[in-house]
């Protein structure tokens, strides 16, 4: 597919970016190669793994299944925008401290997903947490410590 490039404006982590990319370019592609925001990962490029998860207007989205051209005025939040530079959000801190991070390739997606969950529900129970995480694959951890990190953050187990 050789393609004419399209100009669009993306609001990513509060900043506006003018991007020039083929109309078929995914948001993931543009974030990673166009904007150098490589924190969002490509684990499958077909919507299953969740490593590319970002927030669109605060809602979870697969950036590999979102065309950059179709983002429009929706605000994009990536892993780089979760906390200040070299800062950690409570979610990030909980994952680090619970030993929930192994190879780390899935981690940005889990951070985004948990960030969305805690924004809606500061005290989710175990089943709510598990349901929220159901679209993120982790091949290393067996999920137990990820769920524990979230439970810890929710303030109390079970």
């Amino acid at each position: 597919m050789s393609q004419a490039k399209r100009r669009s404006v993306l609001t990513v982590n509060g900043e506006q970016h003018h991007v020039l990319a083929p109309a078929a370019a995914t948001l993931l592609d543009v974030l990673r190669t166009g904007l150098g925001l490589t924190g969002s990962k490509c684990g499958c490029n077909h919507g299953v793994c969740g490593a590319c998860t970002v927030l669109l207007d605060g809602k979870l989205a697969r950036s590999c299944l979102t065309l950059a051209a179709d983002v429009g005025e929706r605000r994009v939040t990536t892993i780089e925008g979760i906390a200040g530079d070299l800062d950690f959000s409570a979610v990030q801190r909980a994952l680090v401290e619970s030993g929930a991070i192994q190879c780390g390739f899935c981690t940005p997606g889990f951070v985004i997903t948990l960030t969305e969950l805690f924004a809606r529900d500061p005290h989710p129970g175990r089943e709510t947490i598990r349901a929220a995480l159901s679209g993120n694959l982790c091949r290393c951890s067996g999920y137990v410590k990820i769920v524990e990190a979230a439970e810890h953050l929710a303030g109390g187990v079970r």
Binding site: G47, G50, L60, R62
Partner: peptide, 9 residues
Amino acid sequence: VAYPAVRAW
């Protein structure tokens, strides 16, 4: 249907 991120869009 699918997962939260797919259901969202």
